[in-house]
């Protein structure tokens, strides 16, 4: 394996470790013990102590940390302090909502960004291009949860096309699940698509004035031929670098969107755990999101080097 990959892998692992430490420290140096929080203020000292021992919270913090990390790596996440339910299946079922939501959002975003970005770049001297660019500017300004509520008003309240909230499980009906994800995915994807569209536009504009495109035209390529053959890959480069940013935007956007549409995903689980002070679940979920962001950055970095021979994987 090339040296770059080793180094990059190593820094990724170190970043993950540092992130887990950060999360652990923030959520464990709290006023009051979790046992006290769970049992309420009326609980006797003996009861609190008993629960503390039962949960392993009397161990030194570094032991608790190692225990937590070990659990994460082996997917033994333990049980919730509050509900007593095992955490892993709960997160698993939440992810069966969130992962498709994020992917659908990405799909919508790319489907919006590519044509609008390219067209507004190709027509940047004409009114249509300017209008498109202004529209994406507006799209960026509308937060996804505001857009979600507007979509509910239009599609669910007035047109009665799609459900305004709730989720039909995949096992019940795949079509029903897709229907309940439609509005959330559109709200999520449109906003990310507007952001991405502007990067696509800038990238295409840069390519349009590139000398190699003129060379291709001088060889006798038509404009669209030259753009397809030389423009696409070159324009993709800067877009790849923001894809990581986009994906983390989608993941965090999903947290809010799930609240808007009351979807039983990881975001809703996170919020209800915060409300219940179910800290171990919060800790797991925050770490999960951070890990997704960190690993995405790694993948984007590798992808960039695969596409661009000037940097390459070797150096």
């Amino acid at each position: 394996m090339p040296r770059f990959l080793w180094r990059r892998l190593l820094t990724t692992i170190l970043t993950l470790l540092a992130a887990s430490l950060l999360v652990f420290v923030v959520l464990n140096f709290l006023p009051g013990s979790p046992a006290q929080v769970i049992l309420g203020t009326q609980a006797t000292r003996a009861a609190v102590r008993e629960l503390t021992v039962k949960l392993g919270l009397n161990q030194p913090l570094w032991m608790q940390y190692l225990h937590w990390i070990g659990g994460l790596l082996t997917l033994h996440l333990g049980r919730s302090y509050i509900s007593g339910q095992p955490i892993a299946p709960e997160i698993g079922s939440a992810l069966s909502v969130t992962a498709p939501l994020v992917l659908l959002g990405l799909l919508v975003g790319v489907a919006v960004a590519m044509p609008t970005g390219v067209v507004s770049a190709l027509r940047h001297r004409r009114a249509s291009g300017t209008i498109l660019a202004a529209a994406t500017q507006l799209g960026i300004a509308i937060p996804n949860f505001v857009l979600g509520i507007l979509l509910i008003i239009v599609a669910a309240v007035y047109l009665r096309l799609l459900p305004a909230s709730g989720f039909t499980p995949w096992t019940t009906s795949v079509v029903g699940a897709l229907q309940s994800l439609a509005l959330p995915a559109i709200s999520l994807g449109l906003v990310e698509g507007a952001i991405l569209s502007r990067y696509v536009r800038t990238a295409v504009l840069g390519v349009l004035s590139a000398d190699y495109l003129r060379t291709a035209r001088a060889e006798g390529m038509r404009r669209h031929q030259a753009l397809l053959r030389h423009g696409m890959r070159n324009a993709a480069l800067p877009v790849i670098t923001v894809l990581g940013l986009e994906l983390s935007g989608l993941v965090i956007g999903a947290v809010v969107i799930e609240a808007v549409f009351t979807l039983p995903g990881a975001g809703s689980l996170l919020l209800s755990s915060v409300a219940n002070r179910d800290l171990i679940v919060v800790q797991d979920l925050v770490m999960l999101v951070a890990a997704v962001v960190i690993v995405t950055n790694l993948l984007v970095d590798i992808m960039y080097r695969v596409v661009d021979p000037r940097i390459g994987l070797g150096s």
């Binding site: 820094t11 970043t15 540092a18 992130a19 950060l22 999360v23 923030v26 959520l27 709290l30 983390s248 935007g249 993941v251 965090i252 947290v255 809010v256 996170l270 919020l271 755990s273 915060v274 002070r277 800290l279 919060v282 925050v286 999101v289 951070a290 962001v293 960190i294 950055n297």
Partner: peptide, 23 residues
Amino acid sequence: MRAADLVYSFPALLAAITLVAAF
């Protein structure tokens, strides 16, 4: 810059949710 990268892997909303959970 490494520390900045580390903080960067916690988007604003996620950081806020974590701190709200704690405080």
